[in-house]
Design a protein around this nucleic acid. Structure first.
Length: 319
DNA sequence: GCGACAG
DNA sequence: ATCTTGTCGC
């Protein structure tokens, strides 16, 4: 119950009267995008339920109860909701739809922000140098109902030697919602790269291979004013055509397949071309399943989460 | 059962 | 991404 998203979900929960229910999807739509349905359910379970709120008035779109069905059955039954075979009967009769909620459509606002920001994306090579490449990654964990993120930035030089490592620990400000990943991870990217010297940024996720053509790598490149490349393990949008990711008729990225490794999907974020993005990923690969800076950042973030190392910056207790 | 949506 | 025992493959 700590993020803006959690507070908005709670507002929705408090607008459902006794004898009514809503679905995770309808609540997500009220917030501006059905894609947030999963995030809504997590927020309900870890936030609203723990604080004793009306968590039971949220069900799946087919009327099934979902997690803690037995407990939810008792609570809904006592409020007059008919349930048979684990499903609400005549769901539409008791359902509150998205339009009935009065809540800030935060995801819609974020989508508009993405559309405004994407106008500034440059898909041409604009390098000062290609000597120092930074990789950033974030690991996540829960402490009760508080979600904590552990960010790591690792910089390597042209010989693939690690020249700098910076880490940060802080609370997560936004849940994971497909196509809005940047809003979850940008705070960690900004904090872990602050005062770090590098020429190119690599991160887990997509660049322009995104439904709005502005994935996390674009967002990060724009905010930091640096060339940035996205490297993902699966496709978000588009189809593979001869090693190229094609979305709505445009070439938005490449499939890079290194010997003995699973393929990765590479798309430019900012100040780099589609072609150069691919070459850079190969150039800084190393003996891992992804480019060395990313593999290292992943390891460091995991160690930080496990308490094996302490953070350069700890925003949990000041610093 | 199908389709599947980065991390 | 995280949750997790035993299981599979080199």
């Amino acid at each position: 119950m700590q993020t803006v998203f959690d507070r908005l979900v709670l507002e929705i929960a408090n607008q459902i009267p006794r004898g009514k229910v809503t679905t995770f999807g309808e609540a997500a739509k009220a917030l501006g995008d059905v894609r947030a349905a999963r995030a809504v359910s997590i927020s309900i379970l870890r936030g609203v339920r723990r604080m004793g709120g009306p968590w039971h008035r949220f069900v799946a779109s087919d009327g099934s109860l979902g997690k803690f069905a037995a407990e939810k059955y008792e609570l809904l039954s006592s409020e007059g909701i008919p349930i048979r075979a684990g499903r609400i009967c005549n769901l539409e009769r008791f359902l509150m739809r998205a339009e009935e909620f009065e809540v800030q459509p935060i995801l819609l606002k974020m989508r508009l922000a993405q559309r405004k920001l994407r106008e500034r994306i440059i898909l041409e090579d604009r390098f000062e140098s290609k000597e120092l490449v930074a990789g950033v990654d974030v690991a996540y964990g829960w402490e009760g109902d508080l979600e904590i993120g552990y960010g790591a930035c690792v910089v390597v030089d042209s010989k693939l030697d690690v020249v700098e490592v910076k880490t940060v620990r802080m609370r997560t400000a936004f849940p994971y919602v497909p196509t809005y990943l940047a809003f979850r991870e940008m705070p960690f990217i900004v904090a872990s790269t602050r005062d770090v010297k590098f020429d190119i940024l690599l991160l887990d996720g997509h660049g322009i291979a995104h439904p709005e053509r502005i994935g996390e790598a674009c967002h990060a490149g724009l905010v930091l004013g640096k060339p940035a490349v996205g490297i993902a393990k699966s496709i978000l949008v588009g189809r593979m055509v001869n090693g190229v990711i094609v979305h709505e008729g445009e070439e938005v990225g490449h499939v890079v397949k290194m010997k003995g490794k699973n393929p990765v999907f590479v798309s430019p974020g900012h100040m780099v071309s589609v072609e150069t993005s691919k070459l850079l990923v190969k150039r800084f690969w190393g003996p891992y399943r992804q480019p060395k800076p990313l593999a290292m950042a992943h390891e460091v973030a995991k160690k930080l989460k496990n308490g094996e190392i302490s953070p350069t910056i700890d925003l949990l207790k000041g610093d």
